[in-house]
Amino acid sequence: MNFTKKLKEARSDFQKGLTSYDIWLALGWNDVQGRYNRSKLGVFWASLSILIFVCTLGPIYSRLFDVSSSDYILHLMLGLVVWNYTQAIILESGREYANSVNYIASFQLSYFTLLLRVVWRNLVVMGYQMLVFLGLVLVMGQVWNISWLIVPVALLVITLNALWLGLFVSVLATRFRDVGEILNNLFRLIFFVTPIMWMPEMKEELDLVANLNPFYHLIEIYRGPFLSGHVSIKSWVVSLAIGCLGWAVAFPLFAKYRSRIAFWV
């Protein structure tokens, strides 16, 4: 079968995913409920665990790095939220097809529907974590500013980037089962070289390390407006460029191998 036809089929896979929102909203929501099944606090455990984490580590590490405690806690909090969201979408996409093989076979669900399910369940968790951020902002008396308005757009750009990475990984990790494990290890490493626990301003020579890291820019377009009201043009350009480039690679890859995925799951 020629490639144009495959691209067309991949496009209709995407269209089917976008239009069957009833399904991925329901499946994703059930996933979130299932993760905290029968616990009293339910999804609020997502909020609570990040609250405990930043409130314990924040005061210690801010002293270690000699920066203001409240600044550091908010910096850590937002970095973690975006990191968890992005990382979860990418890594969970790699397992999603194999986990949901029955859905694909029995209901002709498109692959993209399943990826949107992954996005949605992580978006819900992120929402619960952001409640903690808003709480912290209120407690610490941080002021609102106009640049917060750009945050939803930033979230969209982050999601689109996570989604092309997820799409790419979903094909690769379903075919080669070692890829998932490799990525688990890799992302643990990237977490520490990305300015989440630290700030690029802390040491001049770390600035380069941060700026060479695409994840820093993805986090920055979301974190910047909240923390300093600063919208970094550089980070936006990098994020958008990587997004375009990534989709240009991931989508053809998905189109090429889409019909083989059924044999790999």
Partner: peptide, 26 residues
């Protein structure tokens, strides 16, 4: 395609929720 008995069902949900979920999947 009714290939598996419980395809689409989620054992942690109750019966009514499963009916809704499977309906949407269909």
């Amino acid at each position: 395609a009714l290939l598996k008995l419980m395809s689409g069902m989620n054992i942690n949900l109750d019966g009514y929720e499963n009916i809704l979920l499977c309906g949407m999947l269909h």
